[in-house]
Design a protein around this nucleic acid. Sequence first.
DNA 1: TAGATATTTAGAAAAACATCTAAATATTAT
DNA 2: ATAATATTTAGATGTTTTTCTAAATATCTA
Lengths: 84, 84
Amino acid sequence: MDSVFKALSDGTRREILNLLKKKDMSVTEINKHFPITMASLSHHLDILKKANLVIAERQGQYIFYSLNISVFEEVMKIFLSFFK
Amino acid sequence: MDSVFKALSDGTRREILNLLKKKDMSVTEINKHFPITMASLSHHLDILKKANLVIAERQGQYIFYSLNISVFEEVMKIFLSFFK
DNA sequence: TAGATATTTAGAAAAACATCTAAATATTAT
DNA sequence: ATAATATTTAGATGTTTTTCTAAATATCTA
């Protein structure tokens, strides 16, 4: 669970998740929204992936990232129980 | 809002919040639950205080910490909207 | 008022983190 | 096969975070 809280503690990563709510995106497409290098973005995506918040799927030349809805809901529940 | 996410990203601080759910506690009392120095704990409490998650109130010799319930609920709402 | 207890502040050291450049890997198109 | 595009990995650097020791401040009790 720590990895989830850690993943959410960074503003860039929270924005990435917000972007992915709207639609799945390739790394290049996500990168257009941030003033950081691909390498740096890739690192953020890795952290989100390891926290199980997103899923990466290659489609040909691109790798598309999407929200891991099921875990997202799981996380929501844990947050709720945390605040209760 | 960033201060709240940051505050919650540390395991010790989340445990402190969990302790305070049960009852208000002085710093010395809280400290019994963690293998860290008073100074270090004081720093964690400061971060929680700045995130508005806890309130500090002096009662004579002691300073008692308690959950800031109203903000806690506010935070819960924001978290929910974040996941929606 | 002096000594004891409770807590915070200051400043330093170590660990974790975000970012970068350069190089590596994977896929597509010519 | 080669060149072009997409993404990740490796390694370095600067910043932030966590923690510590020592000193400062506040309150209580004798």
